[in-house]
Design a protein around this nucleic acid. Sequence first.
DNA 1: TATTTATGTCTTATATACTTGACTTTTTGC
DNA 2: GCAAAAAGTCAAGTATATAAGACATAAATA
Lengths: 71, 71
Amino acid sequence: MGKNLRLKSARAAKDLSQKDLAEAVGVARQTMNAIEKGDYNPSIKLCIAICKILGKTLDQLFWEDDGYEEQ
Amino acid sequence: MGKNLRLKSARAAKDLSQKDLAEAVGVARQTMNAIEKGDYNPSIKLCIAICKILGKTLDQLFWEDDGYEEQ
DNA sequence: TATTTATGTCTTATATACTTGACTTTTTGC
DNA sequence: GCAAAAAGTCAAGTATATAAGACATAAATA
């Protein structure tokens, strides 16, 4: 499990800190950090909550990397 | 959390039993049953594994219901 | 009908996602 | 440079996803 750069990027696009996003989603800041870093294997429910806040879909943020960054 | 009928349908389309899918994905049969029934909040990793076997994406199987069954 | 296969359900045990608190390091803005 | 915010990390505890085994019922099939 590598870093989730798409998540990091989408969060930055909304100008949210890890803490901001964590609070919006209802988890601890460390949890967001671990997910972004790729240390945790989050639940689908949490992934969906994150997607909703960031205005993205599961496929956009959590589906397999295609090797390139989509814009 | 309600039943995941899209998952049940996609599994049926591939003519796989819960046991078949569970084995293909590497979890217990009871786990597949619980996910399909909506009792568990599975990990994103497991969801992706299920999607791959069934030839679907996360959005197709696990994104919010739109109220209608897509065909 | 009898017999297998698939599904549903319960219980006990274990792995791990997630929490809380604290601390360090990096980044950002004055 | 300095201060504050953000990000990274570690340890200990809690909640829950998942495993394994067993049994019951439903559905399919001979």
